[in-house]
Write a protein that binds this DNA or RNA. Structure first.
Lengths: 167, 167
DNA sequence: TCAAGTTAGTTTAGGCCTAAAATAGTTTTC
DNA sequence: GAAAACTATTTTAGGCCTAAACTAACTTGA
């Protein structure tokens, strides 16, 4: 295959995380975007290569794992912040693989309640362990103090975002 | 339209940024992911609503703006960390709108060199100004000290990522 | 009651993205 | 100089994602 098709799997987008030019807020944003995209890309690739699954499917399974009684499509959509139609497609795939099951909602015939199957739960445990290993690898050289500080600063950013409209 | 289709435009994915459970590194990752996705979503929506364009197209234009002599498809692909085929499609769209031009590479007939057109440059200036306003809005309540600290911590993370393989 | 409005979910059209295969041009090596 | 290897790019198949249109079912209120 043409190996140039695939960007280096664990390198930073140099041009995106521009050196030291421009206003500080934009520089922070570009660096955060660059880190996030790089990690996300690594996760996607690892999920694909090692488990033949995808990050969005993992996200759905993780959400269902936190809700043993199941969730409706709408609850999944809101929890994961993806569109309703998108959830439809992802859940359908998980259903085809027997990883989740849908049962009728006794209180609302429009809804069905999606739950992790036994097979899904078993697979999720493996996925979650691997996911944690991968994240730990990425943060290996960030001390726990720095992690805590980062966590706090991101809370500040999160609050700032919440306070802002569209611009 | 069904307004539930569209997730709240500027809220956080509660379930993703889980409360205070799990290992610190995963918590940091989920919070960073959540902030990044929220900001990215806001940018996409604003680009769409206010300029009828998209973030990837802006990224290509930004890269070309930094390279007045133009870039080949491969250079764009590497700079933006997206696949070659993807660059092909985005550049084609920009070409159709007259925002970029492609000229033959005199030294390699396989390549063409893409440059921002005059119209493209003019539009980019507007887009960049708006982009900066939006980012400034998001970081409005994050003090410059905090921004600097965040920038440094992300550098640490970036170095940690670079030091790690696939897991 | 029953029409109007609301809500849950699916479908559709279209953009983004990747990996892999295919095409075309360039370089290397014998 | 020609075959082999390599490189730049495009094409294709398929997953992710959204907004908007649509269907079906529930709720409300006169």
């Amino acid at each position: 295959m043409d190996d140039k098709t695939r960007p280096a799997s664990i390198s930073m987008p140099e041009k995106l995380d521009g050196g030291a030019s421009g206003p500080m807020d934009v520089r922070v944003w570009l660096r955060m975007l660059s880190c996030t995209m790089t990690i996300e890309k690594m996760l996607r690739r690892n999920f694909q290569d090692q488990f033949n699954t995808t990050l969005p499917r993992f996200d759905v399974m993780a959400s269902l794992n936190r809700h043993p009684d199941g969730q409706t499509m709408g609850q999944l959509s809101r929890a994961l912040l993806v569109s309703n139609g998108n959830v439809t497609a992802i859940v359908r795939q998980l259903q085809e693989q027997g990883l989740v099951e849908a049962r009728a909602d006794p209180e609302d015939r429009r809804s069905s309640i999606v739950v992790l199957s036994a097979a899904g739960k078993a697979q999720f445990d493996q996925l979650a362990a691997a996911h944690h290993r991968w994240i730990a690898g990425v943060f290996a050289e960030v001390g726990v103090e720095d992690q805590t500080q980062l966590y706090g600063l991101l809370a500040t950013l999160k609050a700032s975002i919440a306070g802002k409209g569209q611009g």
